[in-house]
Nucleic acid binder design. Structure first.
Length: 601
DNA sequence: AAAAAAC
């Protein structure tokens, strides 16, 4: 069904030999792409097989039934089963988001090939008063029966480091600012406590009678695709808990979302613009908000977003900090942004946590000097080489600077018989979702993207991230390369560097050095030359950041805290790098054996 | 200067 890269390339090569007809990319995508409303599961690992799983709790299952909220890529195949949702639509059938539930056998929960010892080496730093201690297993946490069952259905065996630390903090009703590596299981880390907390508060009566709805939790995301992904995840975690999760974002008709909201909402996942719209229309009120979560929090508070977020959090009807629980998550958290974020938080705990084989160990980073004019041919060389060596599943994500150049590069790749598609903010939402699905399924194993795809998106099988144009911000680089090397798999990141990127040289060289990557000699020269620019102070590659409240105590007022980078002075002790096998050697060195789904996000 | 996010 999904053609592999090599297959597509070969067949297209053959076709073009016979008849060199160029098909523009936008038409190409339409040809055999399923229509928008056709339910199709594009999330790897959760299978599209209709399930005949019957809920163990004795809640009746429905007949053959498919629910489709009307967004492409949304519908899960599966048999609906009645939930006991007692708010706004208890009659609703809840789709089983677990395509395949075959094994809830104890055997699955053991012998998973996970190197548990490696968990002991995770560097963790917390600050703030009275930090609740971490837990070692999900069983150590009282999340409730229904949620525990869903965790098992997700085949999460043990909590990831960020979950081990963040969940107890959040269950203790503390505010949290959390820095954790890309792909480290952040979504579950904030979803579990939210769902659990809402289940406990289910007696809460909310105003009725008007068309206004009163969610108890709101989760904000900087992009629509990430909001959609969080929604999908949250629905799995909330299955049969009676907690209703709804998503709202722009680029798609609002009426469907309004109808969905009217049927009841506990957790609203949203992008800022659409949420503001809903608030202004008084279709959503935040009076009852108990939980506020910002994913990719540093992005949510950067110059473009800050006013919108401030409006939502401070100028509408949201309870003030201290009267709600606020949680901010990101892989990067520059101190300027932490300073802004502190406005939203009350007596919060700062948490910075690494992971088993941090992404920097699992991602082989390369930098190549490529003049602007040579980039395309250089990319082609890479793709040709990769076509020879990589397996057919593997995907390549190519980042460019502008929407225009994304279109141009996609077009150029297609003309040169490379099956590519693109995603950026000038494409319609439908085009964006089609492109993403086409990439995920391997139909077009090359995706050209702007930074819209840089953060949070979990795309299995991305083997190679190419920074065709490097970003100006090193944190953006961190997020981009984090699209590969996920869930314990290794990945490659290649960057094209030239004069235009001189400003980034020093930070890039430092980042690579911290990650035990080979830094080309010419880059080191660039880095020392461009040292005046310096760029911003990074929190450190291993932790993703440090609490800005503690900066003074390290006496690094003007420069950067060398002690931070040196690894000295931290209770976590020595960081031992990759858990099994050294560095990048070809074979995945992560702690997960094949087929094991962990709680990485 | 660019990207993202509402109509």
């Amino acid at each position: 069904m999904s053609a592999s890269w090599a297959d597509v390339a070969d067949s297209e090569k053959a076709a073009s030999r016979a008849k060199p007809a160029y098909v523009p990319p936008h038409l190409r995508n339409r040809q055999s792409e399923p229509v928008a409303h056709l339910p199709q599961n594009d999330r790897g690992g959760y299978g599209g097989q209709p399930s005949r799983w019957a809920p163990g709790g004795g809640v009746g299952g429905g007949g053959g039934y498919r629910n489709d909220v009307g967004r492409p890529g949304q519908g899960y195949g599966g048999r609906g089963s009645g939930g006991w949702n007692n708010r706004g639509g208890g009659w609703d059938r809840e789709v089983n988001p677990f395509g395949d539930d075959a094994d809830l056998e104890p055997a699955v929960l053991e012998n998973t090939g996970i190197n548990f010892d490696a968990y002991e080496d995770i560097p963790v730093e917390t600050s703030g008063g009275d930090v609740p201690p971490p837990v070692n297993t999900f069983a150590d946490i009282d999340l409730g029966e229904a949620l525990n069952l869903n965790i098992r259905r997700c085949k999460y065996v043990r909590p990831t480091p960020v979950q081990r630390n963040a969940i107890p903090i959040l269950l203790a009703e503390r505010d949290l600012m959390a820095c954790a590596q890309t792909g480290s299981g952040k979504t579950a880390a904030f979803c579990f406590p939210i769902i659990s907390g809402i289940m406990r508060d289910q007696h809460l009566q909310r105003p009725r009678g008007s068309r206004t709805v009163y969610p108890l939790a709101v989760i904000l995301s900087p992009t629509r695709e990430l909001a959609s992904q969080i929604h999908d995840e949250a629905k799995k975690f909330a299955y049969q808990t009676g907690v209703k999760v709804v998503v709202a974002y722009g680029g798609t008709p609002i009426n469907q979302q309004l109808r969905e909201l009217e049927r009841g909402v506990d957790i609203l996942v949203a992008t800022p613009g659409r949420l503001n719209d809903l608030l202004e229309r008084a279709r959503v009120s935040m009076q009852m908000i108990k939980f506020l979560a910002l994913d990719e929090a540093d992005r949510m508070l950067d110059m473009g977003f800050e006013p919108q977020i401030r409006k939502i959090v401070e100028q509408m009807d949201m309870p003030p900090r201290g009267m709600r629980q606020t949680m901010l998550f990101s892989a990067t958290f520059p101190s300027e942004i932490q300073r802004l974020a502190a406005d939203f938080l009350s007596n919060y705990i700062f948490l910075a946590v690494g992971r088993v084989g941090s992404s920097t160990d699992l991602i082989a980073q390369r930098v190549e000097y490529v003049h602007e004019a040579d980039k395309k041919s250089h990319l082609m060389d890479l793709l040709h080489a990769q076509r020879e060596t990589q397996d057919k599943q593997s995907l390549t994500l190519v980042f460019v600077e502008t929407k225009r150049s994304a279109d141009a590069l996609e077009n150029w790749l297609c003309m040169n018989e490379f099956p590519a598609t693109s995603i950026h903010g000038d494409r319609t939402q439908q085009e964006r979702e089609v492109a993403l699905r086409s990439f995920k399924t391997g139909r077009t194993p090359i995706l050209v993207a702007t930074d819209v795809a840089a953060r949070g998106l979990d795309i299995p099988h991305v083997a190679h991230v190419v920074n065709f144009d490097l970003p100006n911000d090193i944190d953006d680089y961190v997020h981009r390369i984090g699209r590969t090397g996920r869930a314990g798999k290794s990945g490659i990141a290649t960057a094209f560097f030239n004069e235009k990127n001189a400003q980034l040289a020093r930070q890039l060289a430092e980042l690579m050095q911290e990650a035990n990557q080979e830094v080309p000699e010419w880059l080191t020269r660039y880095a020392s030359r461009a040292s005046f620019g310096g760029g911003k102070k990074r929190g450190g590659g291993r932790f993703g950041g440090r609490d800005f409240r503690r900066e003074g105590s390290f006496g690094s007022g003007g420069g950067r805290g060398n002690d931070y980078y040196g690894g000295g002075g931290y209770g976590g002790g020595g960081y031992s790098g990759a858990p099994s096998g050294g560095g990048y050697g070809g074979a995945p060195s992560g702690g997960y054996g094949g087929g094991v789904t962990s709680a990485w996000d």
